Amino acid sequence: MTAPIRVLVCDDQVLIRTGLVTIIDAQPDLEVVGECGDGQAAVDLAGQVHPDVVVMDVRMPVLDGIEATRLLAGAGVPRPVKVLVVTTFNLDEYVYEALRAGASGFLLKDAPPAQLLHGIRTVGTGAALLDPEVTRRLVGRYAARIRPAEGAPNDIPLTPRELEVLRLIADGLSNSEIAAALVISPETVKTFVSRILTKLNLRDRVQAVVYAYRQGLVT
């Protein structure tokens, strides 16, 4: 049998944290290996229990979820840990920064349990979790804060078709939506996405969205 996905839960609100732990631990394919109430504790504990996924709140004492995510999953981390950010979208101005810091995805705190569990499994298997509609709202709201990189977009090593797919990813479209928009098969879209990530040395779709906005490919 496949080993369960090891999960570390980090949230400073005890009731929410307890609820998350209870929901996750009830699943046969998931295992809570630790819980804590601040970002620094998450970083320290992750080094001890080696989780596959950290369910991370953003606003916490001592060290917030953004900095904790950067230390756990950011560029240059020797053994990055996958981070799933769980946040209150309408109140949290920093969730986008958490994605830039290296998070593999995000969910809203009022998401149903089934969606939370699906998110953990998705991130745990190495995929990114981006809800298309929420992504459109999120990136659209914070895109103005991203400073475009110099030399863009002429220096981007992608074909015209790959650039087109990247723009659609940044718009928050799923693979099936991209396939419909470009009148190609979902399998072909997957191939394009894989090539884009490889060429740009990006980990997942989250980083692809950030890259597209930094390069000024979408506004």
Rank of each mutant, 00 (worst) to 15 (best):
L138K: 02
L84D: 12
L8S: 05
C36I: 09
N201L: 05
P78S: 07
L30I: 13
R6N: 11
V62A: 05
R161N: 11
T125M: 05
E93N: 12
G151I: 00
E150S: 14
T2R: 15
I178Q: 03
L72Y: 09
K199H: 04
R136S: 08
M60A: 06
L168D: 08
T125L: 04
L45M: 15
R141F: 09
A26L: 11
V54I: 09
A170E: 02
A98V: 08
L202T: 05
P153E: 05
L166E: 04
F192A: 14
V49Q: 07
L99G: 02
T122R: 07
P51F: 10
Q27N: 05
D92H: 07
L173P: 01
D64V: 06
G124E: 06
D110L: 10
V53H: 10
V193P: 02
G172F: 11
I16Q: 10
R147L: 14
R203D: 09
V53W: 14
A3Y: 06
H50Y: 10
G34V: 08
L15D: 02
R167C: 12
R137I: 01
A170K: 05
P113V: 12
I146C: 02
T125F: 06
T219S: 11
I66C: 14
Y94A: 13
I5W: 05
A170Y: 04
P78D: 06
Y213Q: 09
P160S: 10
G126C: 11
D38Y: 05
L71P: 04
T135C: 09
L91W: 01
V218C: 15
L202V: 02
D204G: 12
D38V: 12
R17E: 06
D29H: 12
Q27Y: 08
P112C: 00
R195M: 08
V83P: 07
A212R: 04
V14W: 00
I66T: 13
A73E: 07
G102T: 07
I184A: 06
T88N: 08
A111W: 03
P61S: 07
M1L: 09
I120W: 01
R167N: 03
I146S: 06
L158V: 01
D29L: 07
A42Y: 03
I178D: 10
T22H: 11
D29F: 11
T191Q: 14
V86H: 07
G37P: 00
A152E: 06
P4W: 05
V43H: 05
A181H: 13
L217E: 04
R100M: 13
T69C: 08
V95G: 06
V77M: 08
D92P: 01
S104L: 11
A111N: 01
V49E: 06
E93H: 13
T219V: 12
V183N: 15
G37A: 15
G105V: 07
G65R: 00
V21R: 14
G65Y: 06
R214A: 15
Q115Y: 01
D110T: 04
P160F: 00
D52E: 14
T125V: 12
V193Y: 07
L99T: 14
V53K: 11
E164N: 11
G105L: 01
I23P: 08
A111I: 03
A46K: 04
V189C: 10
E67Y: 05
L116C: 11
R161P: 00
L200C: 13
G140C: 03
T2A: 14
K109C: 06
